[in-house]
Design a binder for these strands. Structure first.
Lengths: 224, 224
DNA sequence: CGTTATATTGATAGATATCAATACGGGTGG
DNA sequence: CCACCCGTATTGATATCTATCAATATAACG
């Protein structure tokens, strides 16, 4: 029963994917249910009753919030290993909508799971820190730095999961990226154009290839 | 023992201050220790070992993070009833610094307190939602909207705690407000000047008086 | 009362948003 | 298989906003 928690609590950084990987085949693992979510379908909707949190096993999701006028804003981009739904616990109602960007699969983690419980506060704390880092990233930095960081973040996450760190297929439109980064879609497009002219990357529509990782890293630091 | 959790879990919104208020004088309350923090002193520092979270009982705090170069950025402003230190659980090391803006007093909440534990995930979830709301506020909105929202937020919090909703003493400099809102100090100053000329409020240095709450609310909505 | 930090105010430059037109691309139906 | 269409992306011209640089004024403090 402690497999999940212990595996994940060890070390400085906690790693739920690792913990979850160990669950495969164990009695505890069998207890957890999976759920398939077809591309374009919501895993949950803002305002709906909170029931569980989810761990992405395959595919990717975007999180969005809708303000009073119904305007959609992208607040998150999630892949394999990420946890979704933590924001629903406060009011026992989901505070955002999660939509699959491609056919996806998630592990359903009931909120009072004995194996997950001791881990939960730390997981949430990490999310809190990440959220703040994202805020700091977006605030003082230029459009170029934001886009560069976004691209780098994706390549790193892809790499960590065994995919090519040089090439990937974006599943978000320019408008969605802009919404996520606090920029207008035209600005996102222009930045991609600039980075391409500087031979940092090649962006053919949504297919992105990183040509110069060092230059990309450098572009992440430009302040305003 | 369940006083704290139950009082706070009832209703749609959870309220730790209410729960804590009930603890005064009870056996559980006596168990919790208090701590005084003189003005300008840190409650904890970024990077120091995580030991507990804290509930503000009197006074106010600012949270800051220091980037690699040591540059300070204000990430939070906390008053009576707010919880501090949640970001330290992820790595068991505080991810930010909390400094008292005036002589303050906090309740020390050991992380594995039996009364607090069931409440913790919801508390953290709420913080997660707030953090995101803050991000959305800062991203697409004009300097005027940011400052107006900041002022309104303070008056509302003050009001909820029994102080005058019209007048308060800012304990942050223009530079600190700017850091918190993602603006330069000159811009903050100019916005205060503009709001003053429009008779929305009167700002004499750090003493602020709201003259026209409706106009202030209207100013919160200006996008970019 | 002087000294230093903080705040206000002005002039200018730089960045992104906005408005507008054109190009591309994927899918559908002919 | 090609032509057409609609959503998406690119590119350009201009407006708006905030940052920056700089000077002065005010407030806090010893």
């Amino acid at each position: 029963m402690h497999d999940l928690a212990c595996a994940s609590l060890q070390g400085d950084d906690l790693c739920l994917p690792c913990g979850l990987a160990r669950l495969a085949g164990t009695p505890e693992g069998a207890r957890l249910s999976q759920r398939r979510v077809p591309r374009g379908e919501p895993l949950y909707r803002q305002g709906s009753a909170y029931g569980a949190i989810y761990a992405v096993r395959a595919g990717s999701f975007k999180s969005t919030v809708h303000d009073e006028d119904g305007l959609e804003q992208v607040t998150g981009f999630h892949v394999d290993g990420d946890i979704l739904g933590l924001d629903g616990m406060a009011r026992l109602r989901h505070a955002s909508t999660a939509v699959a960007l491609e056919d996806a699969e998630v592990l359903v983690l009931p909120s009072c799971d004995a194996g997950l419980d001791p881990l939960l506060p730390r997981l949430m704390s990490r999310e809190l820190v990440r959220q703040r880092e994202r805020l700091q990233l977006l605030m003082g930095r230029s459009a170029e730095a934001r886009v560069a960081t976004f691209v780098q973040d994706i390549t790193q996450r892809m790499h960590a999961r065994g995919y090519s760190p040089r090439e990937f297929h974006l599943r978000l439109s320019r408008g969605e990226i802009g919404s996520y980064l606090g920029l207008k879609l035209e600005t996102v497009s222009r930045v991609f154009g600039r980075l391409q002219r500087q031979r940092v990357l090649r962006a053919e529509g949504r297919h992105v290839r990183v040509l110069d990782p060092a230059a990309l890293a450098a572009a992440c630091g430009a302040s305003a």
